[in-house]
């Protein structure tokens, strides 16, 4: 495709980026890894006037552990995150999900924040951040605010960011000791966007679920947390989890599209959520 020319500005600070966003409005887009945005531009689906390059900003990169949270700069690449000792030690669910993202090239360039800000409802990492009860830090260069990940995506490719705001950090609470995790997805081909993905974390006590967090991607216009299932799971024996699967029905709002039927998405959701839950239980170690 022939690309309409656009300008590029390599900013030196978040504040500068935010100012450019405010000035140009819809005509400007942020460029982190570019693995969502540049394909869209190449296909003529996005025609910005200005790309604001932020991927290099040191304040937006890196992984640190601080005060019971893991803080991930929004422009940290998937590859860097999946290899980071802090992530490997504490965020196995996220690392596992990243393995399903694209291919080695996408992971070398693409960033966690870029994926979250793109808000494709079938993407793996936004789903995981919802299940982990992460918070998204939005910055306009002067002030920051925290938006729960579960509230961050509002619809297809639409987020809670206000005009002139930049997603700067992802803050993930350290999972409690003994928490088990599970992640399953179905895609046509390994590495493609998920048709449906399921993620779960679980704490167990006396052979039963003590706490569960469960989410799905690809069944609505944003990732969903299955609150009814989470509530019903408490106290359920691991062997009886099957009986809970109807609890997700109200969370499923898939649309028919020419490539995948809504009915199959519903079916997959039930299958994958159970698998994710079972894996999470088998990985959980008993807590007192």
């Amino acid at each position: 495709m022939y690309v309409r020319p656009f300008e590029y500005s390599r900013v030196t600070s978040v504040a500068e980026a935010a100012a450019l966003l405010r000035h140009h409005g819809d005509g400007a887009r942020l460029l982190a890894g570019g693995q969502s945005l540049l394909p869209m531009i190449n296909l003529g689906l996005a025609q910005p006037e200005l790309l604001i390059g932020i991927g290099h900003l040191p304040e937006l990169r890196g992984v640190t552990r601080q005060d019971g949270e893991i803080i991930i700069g929004a422009c940290t690449t998937y590859a860097a995150l999946a290899a980071h000792e802090v992530a490997l030690a504490h965020l196995s669910l996220l690392v596992a999900a990243i393995r399903h993202v694209g291919n080695v090239r996408v992971r070398n360039q693409g960033t966690l924040g870029g994926s979250v800000a793109h808000a494709d409802p079938a993407a793996e990492t936004p789903l995981v951040l919802c299940v982990l009860d992460a918070r998204c830090e939005a910055s306009d260069g002067e002030r920051t605010r925290q938006i729960p990940a579960v509230d961050f995506a509002q619809s297809y490719y639409t987020t809670a960011l206000a005009e002139g705001e930049i997603l700067s950090q992802l803050r993930v609470p350290l999972p409690a000791a003994g928490t088990g995790w599970g992640f399953h997805e179905y895609s046509r081909r390994a590495g493609d966007f998920a048709i449906v993905a399921a993620a779960a974390t679980v704490q167990c006590r006396d052979g039963a679920v003590a706490e569960a967090r469960v989410g799905l991607a690809g069944v609505a216009d944003t990732p969903v947390r299955c609150r009814a299932l989470e509530a019903a799971a408490v106290g359920t024996k691991v062997a009886e989890l099957d009986g809970l699967v109807d609890q997700i029905d109200a969370d499923l709002m898939p649309k028919d599209d020419p490539f995948v039927s809504a009915e199959y998405r519903r079916h997959l959701a039930r299958v994958l959520i159970l698998r994710a839950l079972r894996d999470a239980c088998s990985r959980a170690t008993e807590v007192q």
Binding site: R10, Q35, L38, P39, R105
Partner: peptide, 24 residues
């Protein structure tokens, strides 16, 4: 960025050169 025919190494890492700006 799907087919990989444009793959090059940038600082030792494979990237899709169709999804990276030259200026960067």
């Amino acid at each position: 960025g799907v087919c990989g025919a444009c793959t090059v190494l940038v600082d030792g890492r494979p990237v899709s050169s169709c999804c990276v700006l030259a200026v960067e």
